[in-house]
Amino acid sequence: MIFYRPNNLKNLFELLENSNATNYFLAGGTDINLQTKNIPKNVNIFYISHLNVLRNITEINGHISIGSTATFSDILHSDYLAKHLPFFQNSLKFFASPIIQNLATIGGNIVNGSPTNDVSPLLLILDAKLELISKNNSRIIPFNSFYRGYKEFDLQKNELVKAILIPKNAENNLETFYQKVGARNSLTISKITVAGLKFIENNRIKKIKIAVGSVNEYPRRLVNLENYLITKRINEIKKDELTKIIAVEITPISDFRSDQNYRFVVCLNLIEKFLGINF
């Protein structure tokens, strides 16, 4: 293992280019330190937490840009986010616990790629984008297309997530919902997470976005469900149709946290709760 502490972004990309081992980025370390047994010995580690350019929370072209190494504490204490994205900020209050929030970074949560990660369902419904940078290139992609499979990403070799971009008005005039279910109230590790935004006028669904975590190989929007719900009146929604669509769109697994059936039923219950229906 060789450890690098680049002086700036330019230096980081030069070092990356000259590296011929597997490269790891180290920010808060809260995930990487749990995986050290599985990390091969001949890796190069690039520390990035000290690069302030990756940590800012700012406004750019109608978007709020959150640097990838912003910690969850940075996010929770940002007055700017409290003003513009209060739902996003409040939803993350129960991310892990304070002693992890002070280290863990939003970019790390995304690229660790756990199907249970707390932040992705929120980014999906808020139409977030990712700003990716490499030595000579920079591109912006919809967050929706970032995950390709279990821990597979739209990320090139030596490419880095620079920032997360959320439209400034993403929450405006919408009813919001975020709930994760876990074993404890403290340090809740998600068994099922449902995030949603909706706009209902005259009892009819005019806007609807639903994303789920922990029930697929990566967090995703339930597009077929959204298509079924849009323009419907709440009282037109049928339990059997809803169940059938969700059964196709989510593929929960059984693991040490819960079994498949439990995850399916709770996911369905949370979606019904979000929609405000009681069959």
Partner: peptide
């Protein structure tokens, strides 16, 4: 694994789990 808090220290005035932080931090 950062879940129990027995290793909590203050790093730059903030409580952190020292078992999942590194010397570089």
């Amino acid at each position: 694994e950062g879940e129990c808090g027995a290793c909590t220290i203050l790093l730059n005035d903030k409580p952190v789990a020292s078992c999942i932080a590194n010397l570089i931090h």
